[in-house]
């Protein structure tokens, strides 16, 4: 017999959608310029890379670390939630392992981001 789903059964769902939206904004604002500079323009020699001392000072700034951490955590949460539904709806893969891999991967990535930023 089909079980009726109560609205209170998955209280975490609104939080996931909130993180998805926040990550959508963070990624839209920061990913294009950073991928363009670090991934395309500097490697192709269009722009000279910044010196190591300058970029280290920038990265060690507490405000930079805070913003980068926020962008990483939100972007990963955005990926987890959207990719989960890409697999669910797009490829019709409905398996509980998908949730574990997506949200677990986002948590693991956030922890790695914290380690990288604290070790700067």
């Amino acid at each position: 017999m089909a079980r009726r789903i109560k609205p209170t059964e998955r209280p975490v769902e609104p939080l996931l959608w909130l993180l998805f939206s926040g990550g959508g904004v963070a990624a839209a604002l920061f990913a294009p310029i950073l991928l363009f500079l670090l991934g395309v323009a500097i490697p192709l020699g269009w722009i000279d890379p910044p010196g190591h001392a300058d970029v280290l000072a920038l990265a060690r700034n507490p405000l930079t670390r805070l913003v980068v951490f926020g962008v990483c955590v939100l972007s990963l949460a955005h990926w987890a939630h959207r990719f989960r539904y890409t697999l669910y709806d797009g490829l019709q893969l409905k398996h509980s392992l998908i949730n574990l891999a997506c949200y677990g991967g986002a948590l693991l990535g956030s922890a790695l981001a914290a380690v990288v930023l604290l070790m700067l």
Partner: peptide, 18 residues
């Protein structure tokens, strides 16, 4: 979203090297 995740990986590799 897959490439949003790649962006985070690439940024963290950059910061780790720095």
């Amino acid at each position: 979203s897959v490439f949003v995740a790649w962006f985070v990986v690439f940024l963290l590799l950059f910061l780790r090297a720095v």
